[in-house]
Design a protein around this nucleic acid. Structure first.
Length: 299
DNA sequence: AAGATTACCTGAAGGC
DNA sequence: TGCCTTCAGGTAATCT
């Protein structure tokens, strides 16, 4: 579910809680929490100092109010169906709510997760840094040079690269498909086979798609809601995702559906050809040192 | 190194 | 209505 745009929207919704203190912790199931006892021990009497997002990972910074001034971070990954919602403690909790963090003003920060693919844990500043070091670049922060370096040198399929959080952090199945459609690239193309122009197209497409998705509060195709329980509206802007069998909004061809990198991928077989639609020039040599075989220019 | 497969867990949707 | 299968926005482990 929650990809970069959704998690960013949740993070923004949580920021008004900065300065608030947790008064109580209550759990339902805890099998998705790393050391639930630690949360129970540290969170009460701790003040929310900061809310950050690294890709799909939420990091909520805390400081103990009394005792040691030690700071720590609550990491929350929403998985597929995780929700963090601020609610009045009087309201009945949704089914599958497993963590309640009471606030001094009578509200609660509640974590609900139907499938419990999400994860929660407390880490130190060093622990946070170690986690972030495993992640790739933020799609909105990296420049074209680094983008080229990170994708253009890899032989894996471009769809797999977009989904790999060590390459770029924050893209998931929806925004990967939407970005590839926008850039007119087949999901099975290899990173190293992409031309400079194609890489620029992809870099731009990702920025456009993700920025617009954030502006629209994310995509709600099933469960996703923000910290105030509101759905996003980017689902109205989707161009290929979940449109298999329908006409491509750019060329009219029938949108296809294949599995790439173990994930369902939607694409337009005409706009996103498997082979680069580049007219080869005489004497042009590809990376194998062989002359390019002319591929029919579609469209 | 990259890809395929499986697993984690629950619910929705479709076929019969 | 019920039963069965398939699929779902994520990630990690294991095998080839």
């Amino acid at each position: 579910m929650p990809e970069l745009a959704e998690v960013e929207t949740v993070a923004r919704g949580l920021r008004p809680l900065v300065g608030r203190t947790i008064t109580a912790v209550r759990f339902g199931k805890t099998d998705f929490i790393d050391q639930p006892e630690l949360l129970r021990a540290l969170l009460p009497e701790s003040r929310i100092g900061e809310v950050r997002r690294y890709g799909k990972l939420l990091a909520i910074g805390f400081a103990r109010r009394r005792l040691d001034p030690e700071r720590f971070w609550l990491l929350v990954h929403l998985g597929m169906t995780g929700q963090l919602v601020i609610q009045d403690s009087g309201l009945p909790a949704a089914r599958h709510t497993h963590v309640w963090l009471g606030l001094e003003d009578g509200r609660e920060l509640r974590y609900t997760d139907i499938r419990r693919f999400g994860r929660m844990q407390i880490v130190s500043a060093e622990g946070l840094a170690a986690r972030v070091a495993l992640l790739g670049a933020d799609p909105l922060e990296l420049g074209i040079a680094e983008f080229r370096q990170r994708l253009g040198t890899r032989r894996a399929r471009v769809k797999a690269l977009l989904l790999d959080q060590r390459v770029l952090r924050g893209l998931g199945n929806i925004y990967a498909d939407e970005s590839l459609w926008r850039a007119r690239l087949h999901p099975m193309r290899s990173g190293s086979e992409l031309s400079g122009t194609e890489l620029v197209r992809l870099w731009r497409a990702i920025r456009t798609v993700v920025r617009e998705a954030i502006r629209r509060g994310g995509t709600s195709v099933a469960n996703y809601v923000d910290a105030l329980g509101r759905r996003g509206t980017y689902q109205k802007r989707l161009r290929v995702y979940r449109r298999a069998g329908l006409a491509c909004l750019r060329c009219g061809a029938k949108i296809g559906r294949i599995v790439v990198a173990g994930r369902t991928s939607h694409f337009c077989p005409r706009c996103q050809p498997r082979r680069a639609a580049i007219a080869p020039r005489r004497g042009n040599r590809n990376h194998h040192g062989k002359t390019d075989i002319p591929t029919p220019l579609l469209r």
